[in-house]
Simulated scan of single mutants.
Amino acid sequence: MEKAFALVKVDQKTDFASYFMKGKANYWWESRKALKGDDIMTWDRFTKLFLEKYFPRYMKNQMEINFLELKQGNMSVTEYESKFTKLARFVPEQVDAEEKRAKRFQQGLKPWICSGVAIFELTTYMVVVQKAMIIEGKSEMS
């Protein structure tokens, strides 16, 4: 929704987002709105309530654990990077700087790929990913 709001410059975000709710989400919203009465609900409050309902803390905690335990394992570098990116949004403090993101990604690579990447002392995430892909690709050609 935030991407859509940025594109069309929506001012009444809560009304706009709630218009698209269907099924259980719409029933939830209608009951929340009835409890609120005539008071206007801010977008920040709406998103907080929505996330509490549909993305509770225990789920966020589980996603954080999944990220912290993430290793390349049997995945290709491309698959690992995709999963890394997906889970990284749940732990912004772990990847809030380019160098931190690059280091964390590198640590999860297969040891032989990590060793190959480490010698370059890279600090840029995309460069680490690219070098890991090159190293992996070279081994597949051997």
Rank of each mutant, 00 (worst) to 15 (best):
M1Y: 13
A4I: 12
F5E: 10
A6W: 14
V10Q: 15
D11H: 09
Q12S: 10
T14E: 01
D15I: 06
D15F: 03
A17F: 01
A17G: 00
S18F: 02
F20T: 08
G23Y: 05
K24V: 04
A25H: 09
A25D: 07
N26K: 12
Y27N: 13
E30L: 15
S31H: 15
S31T: 12
R32E: 13
K33Q: 14
G37D: 15
D39C: 12
W43E: 01
F46D: 00
F46Y: 01
F46I: 08
T47V: 13
K48N: 09
E52K: 07
E52V: 01
K53W: 00
K53E: 09
K53S: 03
F55K: 02
P56T: 03
Y58Q: 04
M59A: 08
M59D: 08
M59W: 15
M59R: 12
K60E: 11
E64Q: 12
F67E: 01
L68S: 03
K71Q: 07
K71T: 10
Q72K: 01
Q72C: 01
Q72A: 00
G73A: 07
M75L: 14
S76A: 11
S76V: 10
S76R: 02
E81L: 05
E81D: 07
E81P: 00
F84L: 05
L87V: 07
L87A: 06
L87W: 02
L87K: 02
F90E: 08
F90I: 08
P92Q: 04
D96Q: 12
A97R: 10
A97N: 14
K100Y: 03
K100M: 14
K103M: 13
R104H: 13
Q106L: 04
Q107N: 14
L109C: 00
L109N: 00
K110D: 15
P111G: 04
W112D: 14
W112G: 06
W112K: 10
I113S: 06
I113D: 01
V117K: 00
I119D: 07
E121G: 04
T123C: 02
T124G: 14
Y125H: 09
V129Y: 05
K131N: 02
M133Q: 14
M133A: 08
I134H: 09
I134L: 15
E136L: 06
K138F: 13
K138Q: 15
